[in-house]
């Protein structure tokens, strides 16, 4: 069995009166693509933000590469963020900067190399996401799919070991969905990264997933392969995968 590099143990998280997680437990193995699925607003993205330290859990612990992230100081958190990168839902490119400046941003913050090395790296990652030569464009000049790819280029620039994808294909046309899925797969093969993908697009799930986890009833209700999911006793999961109508009451 592959080495576990990230684990969530007994995580509870609430926003005001909205309890998102009561007891979240999840392990992520090195080199796998784990997909987190679940209905809208159940807190799938919260999971990713907790992992990268953008949110703090109310209870429980998250271990990444052997360290409890709640105990990390500023330097430790910086190091963690050089190993775990995140692609945000809307790509979150900085509007005031060019594509080149956006991609250089993490390189500068992590003192990655000389300016010449950084220029070379920018060209390299843009090549990887099939968008060479667009260094001088501003995000406003890019389409939704292009923004996602530049966001991905920015995420992989510092050579992370884990990439978190927050709804990478939401709002894209089928061609761009396939393109992004292809990129996730090729990055996995070429760079050997571990990927955690939050999505509710089942095509994406079945194209890229090694294991999938379902958020349901404020916890992870299922973790397993897509084949195991199809046969699982939890009706909501089966219906979710098929795209049918599942209700909470049917499972209670």
């Amino acid at each position: 069995m592959a080495e576990t590099i990230i684990s969530f143990r007994g995580i509870a998280k609430a926003f005001g009166n909205n309890q998102v997680y009561e007891s979240l437990n999840l392990d992520v193995h090195r080199g796998e693509t784990l997909t987190i699925i679940g209905g809208s607003g159940v807190g799938k993205s919260v999971c990713l933000k907790l992992l990268i330290g953008l949110l703090q859990p109310d209870a429980g612990s998250i271990t990444a590469f052997g360290d409890d992230i709640s105990t990390l100081n500023e330097k430790g958190l910086l190091h963690l963020r050089s190993r775990i990168a995140m692609l945000f839902q809307g790509a979150a490119l900085f509007d005031s900067m060019t594509v080149e400046e956006n991609i250089k941003y993490p390189l500068i913050e992590h003192a990655w190399g000389t300016p010449a090395q950084m220029d070379k790296r920018v060209a390299e990652v843009l090549e990887m996401v099939d968008m060479p030569g667009i260094q001088k464009l501003k995000p406003a000049e890019l389409s939704g799919g292009m923004k996602k790819r530049v966001g991905l280029a920015r995420s992989i620039a510092i050579e992370p070991e884990v990439i978190l994808y927050d709804e990478p294909t939401t709002g894209l046309d089928p061609v761009n969905v396939r393109r992004i899925n292809g990129l996730i797969l090729s990055l996995q093969e070429r760079l050997g990264v571990t990927s955690i993908v939050v999505t509710h697009d089942m095509d994406t799930v079945f194209t890229i997933t090694d294991r999938l986890a379902m958020v349901y009833m404020k916890r992870i209700a299922f973790v397993g392969t897509p084949d195991e999911a199809r046969k699982h006793e939890l009706r909501y999961l089966r219906e979710f995968i098929k795209g049918g109508k599942g209700t909470l009451s049917e499972d209670l």
Binding site: I52, L54, F88, Q89, G90, A92, D95, Y105, E109, H110
Partner: peptide, 17 residues
Amino acid sequence: GSMNVTEQVDAIKALGA
């Protein structure tokens, strides 16, 4: 505020700044 609602503020943190 616009940066915040489009997750650019979170992105600054996630990118190590």
